[in-house]
């Protein structure tokens, strides 16, 4: 059969699209999204502020010392002056009953809240990857066991349970080398992370399931790769997109989870602070001193909102088909 056409080399050079890796494509798309970029900048600022909290405090001249002299003796220990004692010395006012500067408390509190949130997200995503991969790739009874377990966990009154659990564990003095506030934080990280993992495991599992049937996995197996090789070399790289999206979308949830638990008093407790702890303390006095509730609340909401916007943007960047206005 005579060849009807030449395999013209020229056809190859005038190729369709400049191919880039999905990661770079996503990054390019993300950069075009102004809202996400703004959110990202805000998040970066918050992170910087919490990392450099001591430095900032020193620069602004605030500290976490108790300034009892600023509290009103007649008004049940509430701050003198308007808006919870706002002044040049104390830009956001002071805490009732202890007189500590609110700005300093917020800065140090952000550290705690964000540290716990990132830790819990890491735990949740890691567990999700491990169990999701395991269940999705191997299938069979492993999958059944893991899926059933996540089902049970999701049917559980998780919040109620964590409150009870944390109340119980709050009495522990030391585990290993951790004590006091450090222990408290570690416990929170593990509890929140653990109870979030069914959700992440399910997501990972469905991702793995859809990838597992793709040709490149079959090809790898035909070539004689061991299961572990396939998992690490083939599947995992293709999962980085979903993992990044999952992580960025989990952070707001964990922040609010810690805040909720601390609010109810089973999370971080004084003298340590976190956003939730401040709000919890404020819940007793906010009718009289709304500033004490407002500032930590706004700070938390702004940060969570920024994380949500950023997470949405990242998700849209990786999958432009996903619905966005």
């Amino acid at each position: 059969m005579t060849a009807v056409t030449d395999p013209v080399a020229a056809a190859g050079t005038r190729s369709a699209s400049r191919t880039r890796s999905p990661g770079r494509l996503a990054l390019a798309r993300l950069r075009r999204d102004r809202v996400s970029v703004a959110a990202g900048v805000f998040v970066a600022l918050v992170l910087l502020a919490s990392v450099f909290a001591p430095l900032i405090c020193r620069v602004l001249g605030v500290d976490t010392e108790r300034h009892i002299e600023l509290l009103s003796l007649t008004n049940l220990g509430f701050p003198e002056g308007r808006f919870g004692g706002m002044s040049w010395d104390h830009p956001l006012g002071i805490e009732p009953k202890t007189g500590r500067d609110l700005l300093a408390l917020l800065l140090y509190g952000s550290r705690t809240s964000l540290l716990i949130a990132f830790g819990a997200t890491a735990v949740s995503v890691l567990l999700g990857i491990v169990f999701g991969l395991w269940a999705g790739y191997f299938g069979g009874w492993v999958d059944t066991v893991i899926s059933r377990s996540t089902e049970v966990l999701m049917a559980f009154p998780v919040f109620l349970f964590s409150i009870a659990l944390l109340a119980v564990l709050g009495n522990l003095d030391r585990v290993w080398f951790l004590t006091g506030n450090g222990l408290r934080m570690a416990i929170l990280i593990f509890v929140i992370g653990f109870f979030s993992f069914p959700y992440t495991a399910r997501l990972m599992r469905s991702q793995v399931l859809s990838l597992r049937t793709r040709e490149f996995v079959a090809a790898a197996r035909v070539m004689g790769s061991t299961n572990r090789r396939i998992l690490v070399r083939e599947l995992l790289p293709n999962l980085t997109g979903p993992i990044i999206v999952l992580t960025s979308l989990s952070i707001p949830t964990t922040v609010l989870a810690e805040a909720g638990l601390s609010f109810l008093g089973v999370g971080i407790s004084p003298p340590a602070t976190s956003w939730g702890q401040l709000l919890g303390a404020a819940s007793r006095t906010f009718v009289v001193d709304p500033a004490y509730m407002l500032f930590p609340g706004l700070c938390m909401v702004a940060t969570v909102l920024a994380f949500n916007l950023l997470g949405d943007g990242i998700r849209d960047a990786f999958d432009p088909k996903s619905t966005k206005s």
């Binding site: 906010f286 509730m293 609340g297 949500n308 206005s325």
Partner: peptide, 28 residues
């Protein structure tokens, strides 16, 4: 666009904060 903004706000504002704001506004 408006509902998207409000939705994003909604998932970022936990019940304890919105609750305190509501109670404050409605009682004091």
């Amino acid at each position: 666009r408006g509902s998207t903004v409000i939705s994003l706000l909604g998932v970022s504002i936990p019940e304890f904060f919105s609750g305190m704001l509501l109670i404050y506004a409605l009682t004091a």
